[in-house]
Amino acid sequence: MVGKRLGDNYRIFIMECVVQGIVETQHVEALEILLQGLCGVHRERLRIHEMCLKSGPNLGLVASEVRLLCDLEQPEPAWTVKHVGGAMRGAGAEQISVLVRTMVESKASKNVLRVFYALGYKLDHELLRVGFAFHFQRGAQITITVSSVNKMLKLHATDEAVPVTPGIQLVEVTAPASSENYTEVVAAMSSFCEYLAPLLHLSKPGVSTGVVPTAAAAAASLMSDGGGVVPTAAAAAASLMSDGGGTTL
């Protein structure tokens, strides 16, 4: 997070780097083992109720969209307002394998949905993400989430959510960045994503690459007792640690 003081108000410019991929649910356990070895931290459980709101027909000079995230894993549901802006464009942006976009988040108290309804925003759709996340520092503050994306059959009925794509889970790697440091963050993320390549391919959101053909073999290798599960993960982690995660692709 980079903050600049302008006059009486803080103006905080925040960007994020992001890549996404998919993995078959049967290989999630292997992915978790690999991530555990690479990250060196314990996973955190993830259960996020995400609501996407859009401005009403007459509100705003342009249509706008805001996401409200409710973390259901906390003892008291914790709310976050998230605004995702446009992706960086141009020849330089196209050459890198990571999407760089503006993103601003703010924690909020529990009646945030009522406030945005009062302001003229309408619920467009809602999702429930269930899975796990790893947060760690390796050249950037990287977050990896592995989650099944579920839809609600009734409004806000998170207990009755069903998977949107049964048997497939979404993997998302993100890291906060600023206009000053995003190239370093992109390099750190790209370097890290290389280690996941046998199991899944990560690319810019919206660029579908499907599951990788080597996933089953890589998962089997990771899961087998004598097949070098731990050595593979540990070696990958050791390699990352030794170069500080700063290796570019």
């Binding site: 108000n9 803080y10 103006r11 905080i12 410019f13 925040i14 401005s55 509100l59 705003g60 000079l61 342009v62 706008s64 805001v66 307002v81 605004h83 802006g85 503006t102 601003v104 988040e105 703010s106 924690k107 909020a108 108290s109 009646n111 945030v112 009522r114 406030v115 009062a118 302001l119 003229g120 925003y121």
Partner: peptide, 27 residues
């Protein structure tokens, strides 16, 4: 803090909520 008195609503948020409001371009 946001307050909409007429609807008896008060919201506590981070300072960054101001940036979000600017980017939404709705208020």
């Amino acid at each position: 803090y946001f307050v909409i008195r007429g609807q008896r609503l008060v919201l506590e948020a981070d300072l960054t909520i101001q940036t979000i409001m600017e980017r939404l371009q709705s208020y």
